[in-house]
């Protein structure tokens, strides 16, 4: 479903991502781990066709992220780090707009909206303005936006950041249920989350993949925390540059 080959991105002299290679099969939930500034968000933005890679390629559902970006966009659901909401719209107005631009047929729009409202536990705020929502609800509306058109690949950039414990549990359950029929790429720096939700782990540090393995295999001998710290400290974590703020 996702094939990433030698993907690189530099901003001027600074290399944010250096030759990242990994893959994800259909139905896998891949945890994309790394310390802050490791290049997670940049990689994800390239996969979501927001940024073009400096070199290397990736295919999603068989389509090239540069040459066939239009096709890729139809196949993915993407939740950026900050949920992209229009504050002045109500949740249902917002989802209706999303349904339209994601090409859901007119007769299906209502049905799909009802479906994601249920799925993401946001039915009770459907008539509220997005700007009045709490962080947890914003995150869930953002998630609803990403899955409304039933994409084959779902890309989530830190979907549980800023949520309270109960909301985290709900979102994790939701992601797990999504994993049954979709491929999910989930970036995070919360380790327990990965062991609970994912079946594959990719650890990235300083713009490079240091570990790619299935979760079961990886955690046979040591626990994930140890592995993470060891693999990351091989690189100089303190040098990791701050996340680029791309306009």
């Amino acid at each position: 479903m996702i094939e990433v080959a030698n993907l690189s991105k530099s901003y001027g002299d600074y290399q944010a991502v250096r030759g990242v290679t990994f893959s994800a099969a259909k139905g896998e939930i891949v945890g994309f781990l790394g310390p802050n500034g490791a290049g997670k968000t940049t990689t994800i933005r390239m996969l979501a066709t927001y940024l073009p890679p400096t070199s290397g390629t990736a295919t999603i559902a068989g389509f090239d992220i540069v040459k066939q970006a239009e096709k890729v966009r139809q196949k993915i659901g993407y939740l950026p780090e900050n949920p992209p909401l229009y504050g002045e719209m109500t949740v249902s107005e917002y989802l209706k707009f999303i349904a339209e631009i994601k090409g859901i047929s007119r007769s299906q729009v209502r049905l799909k909206i009802e479906e994601v409202l249920e799925r993401c536990f946001i039915s009770d705020v459907r008539h509220k303005l997005c700007q009045h929502l709490s962080r947890g609800y914003r995150q869930r509306v953002g998630l609803a936006q990403a899955i409304i058109h039933d994409p084959e690949v779902i890309i989530l950039d830190e979907p549980t950041s800023g949520l309270d414990p109960r909301q985290i549990i709900e979102i994790r359950q939701l992601i797990q249920s999504l994993g049954k029929s979709h491929t999910v790429l989930l970036s995070t720096h919360i380790l327990p989350e990965v062991s609970m939700v994912c079946n594959k782990v990719v650890i990235i540090s300083n713009g490079q993949v240091v570990i790619e393995s299935s979760l079961n295999q990886l955690t046979k001998e040591k626990d994930l925390e140890q592995i993470f710290l060891e693999s990351v400290s091989r690189e100089d974590v303190t040098v990791a540059a701050p996340t680029m703020n791309v306009a």
């Binding site: 979501a48 066709t49 927001y50 993915i76 993407y78 992209p84 909401l85 936006q145």
Partner: peptide, 16 residues
């Protein structure tokens, strides 16, 4: 749109 991040949503949606 750029300031509040919805620009990223529009660009990565299947609209040209």
């Amino acid at each position: 749109e750029k300031r509040r991040g919805t620009f990223e949503l529009l660009i990565t949606s299947p609209v040209t």
